[in-house]
């Protein structure tokens, strides 16, 4: 401590400068979010007329208007729809991706090398390359305008990124535990569910969080598959505000935007430590 303090005396000022720079950058970075929160509480006449970030008085009625929803569909309904899709996606991804990952990480089978390479290649595959035929398939099955096209693919491990993430994690687990389980007479299924899966929890949580947030934020897939207002998600309902040219609806519109971001913020606050570390390790190992 003392020796570095002496040898780096001029850095004291440098360190303060770094902190100041970071704080300044943070202010700019967080401005849009502050703006969102402030505007969601501004009365209609203040949105344009006043340049102050902070509202003159807090217009909570914006939130009451927002709760009424869009086109007679209440926000609770929209929120429920969004949660249903995101929840289904989380369950699907965690299940199907961990199953596939276990096979790739631990079991031997023919074509393992080529299939693994194929799986990695699909991480880079643009979604749009398969989008139209997928749409046609779901259309033929009469499943357009239902939630199946949004949830079913997750149960088939189509998001290879997560398969890869879990494979990487499982490879780091000690093999001895599985060997022991096998000597005790556990088959591959029991040793997967009893031994491997519990140890894989960190990777599964990372998968769950990212699946939730990406599905929650997803717009494109919902835009093409859902038509009925009462099947809309929060994201789709917000989209109908996009064309609104008048700023009079700003308050309720951004109140609804805040509501739409709340689940992500809650997820982030609850798991942020986990999330950032999971992200970093998956990225660097990749």
């Amino acid at each position: 401590m003392t020796s570095t303090a002496v040898s780096r005396k001029p850095l004291g000022r440098g360190r303060i400068a770094v902190h100041l720079g970071c704080l300044a950058a943070l202010l700019v970075m967080l401005y849009p979010l502050a703006w969102l929160l402030a505007t969601s509480l501004k009365p209609a006449d203040e949105v344009v007329a006043s340049l102050d970030l902070l509202p003159g008085h807090l217009e909570w009625s914006n939130y009451r208007t927002a709760l009424d929803g869009v086109n007679d569909v209440s926000v609770w309904r929209l929120l429920g729809n969004s949660l249903l899709i995101a929840g289904g996606a989380v369950v699907g991804n965690v299940l199907s991706c961990s199953l596939a990952a276990y096979a790739f990480a631990r079991l031997r089978f023919r074509l393992r090398g080529p299939l693994f390479a194929f799986m990695i290649a699909t991480i880079m595959l643009p979604h749009h390359a398969v989008l139209i035929p997928q749409y046609i398939i779901f259309n033929q099955l009469g499943l357009v305008n239902t939630y199946w096209p949004l949830i079913l693919p997750k149960f088939l491990a189509t998001e290879a990124f997560f398969v890869f993430l879990i494979v990487q994690f499982m490879r780091g687990l000690p093999r001895e535990l599985e060997e022991a389980a096998r000597i005790d007479g556990c088959g591959p299924f029991r040793s997967f569910f009893r031994v491997v899966l519990p140890l894989t929890r960190p990777a599964l949580i990372t998968t769950a969080i990212f699946t939730f947030i990406w599905t929650w934020n997803d717009f494109f897939t919902q835009l093409i598959y859902l038509f009925d207002q009462d099947k809309f998600t929060l994201t789709l309902a917000l989209r109908s505000f996009v064309d609104a040219s008048s700023t009079s609806a700003f308050g309720p519109m951004f109140a609804m935007s805040v509501i739409a971001l709340l689940p992500i913020v809650l997820f982030f606050l609850a798991f942020q430590r986990f999330l950032v570390e999971g992200m970093a390790s998956s990225g660097v190992k990749g």
Binding site: T39, T235, I264
Partner: peptide, 9 residues
């Protein structure tokens, strides 16, 4: 990546 932030933008 959300619609909310895109609307803010």
């Amino acid at each position: 990546a959300s619609m909310s932030v895109a609307l803010v933008w």
